[in-house]
């Protein structure tokens, strides 16, 4: 999909936030992803031109970060943490269960294009293990069944809300736009630091008081 004049204007407004153009590379990649669903050649070439970079430099960044996809993903991209803690707390079973339930492998997309699956590295939410993410929003303390229910709700077009973060789950392109720095109005919704996260802090505070 070629970028519209309006898209190019948005890109310019993102670039204008930075003292040096090239600093805008990451939000622009997210923005390109919000328009095309993934990083296309058109996206890389447009960004390179906008930032006075070579296409190889843009491509280097786009291939380094796993949040940028070089092929289409589902409307809802589901990531299951399979690093040590989440894995032993049930992450491995959840990942296996979802693969079986959706009939796809790692990095696969369901035929209806609704859900894609990826095993992901630690999301710094071990206190809520096992954790599943959808479009980079948190679904804490998951079970095989709750994860299956979650992807079913996505395929039915009514995705469950994240357990932390915004009140609604945005689709992949909408989330990419948020990551590009475009406010969707959901920024301040939901719990920021949940009880398990604060547990240790509260104990230490009590202890300090004696």
């Amino acid at each position: 999909m070629a970028f519209t004049d309006k898209d190019l204007q948005v890109m310019d407004s993102i670039i204008n936030r930075y003292p040096r153009k090239r600093s805008a590379i990451m939000p622009l990649l997210h923005y390109a992803q919000s328009r095309d669903g993934f990083i296309t050649s058109d996206g890389i070439e447009t960004i390179a031109k906008k930032l006075d970079l070579e296409t190889a430099e843009v491509s280097a960044v786009a291939t380094f970060y796993t949040q940028y996809k070089r092929k289409p993903v589902g409307e809802y991209h589901v990531g299951v943490c399979t690093n040590t803690l989440c894995a032993v707390m049930g992450g491995d079973e959840i990942f296996a269960g979802l693969k079986d339930h959706l009939g796809i492998e790692n990095d696969g997309v369901t035929a209806d294009g609704k859900v894609s699956l990826e095993h992901i590295e630690c999301n710094a939410a071990c206190d809520f293990a096992p954790v599943v993410m959808a479009n980079w929003e948190f679904y804490d303390n998951q079970t095989v069944q709750s994860a299956k229910d979650l992807v079913d709700s996505m395929r039915a077009g009514k995705p469950k809300a994240p357990t932390r973060g915004p009140d609604v789950l945005q689709n992949w392109k909408e989330t990419s736009a948020v990551l590009a720095g475009i406010n969707d109005g959901h920024a301040n919704e939901g719990v920021q630091a949940g009880a398990p996260t604060l547990l240790g802090l509260n104990i230490s505070k009590k202890g300090a008081r004696g």
Binding site: E45, L53, E54, A56, T63
Partner: peptide, 22 residues
């Protein structure tokens, strides 16, 4: 000043490469 080759990908797959059309 011809950065047409870069380090692409990451981890075990990190590799020198060009952009496919340049």
């Amino acid at each position: 000043s011809d950065p047409f080759i870069t380090l692409n990908e990451r981890g075990a797959l990190q590799q020198v490469g060009i952009y496919e059309k340049q």
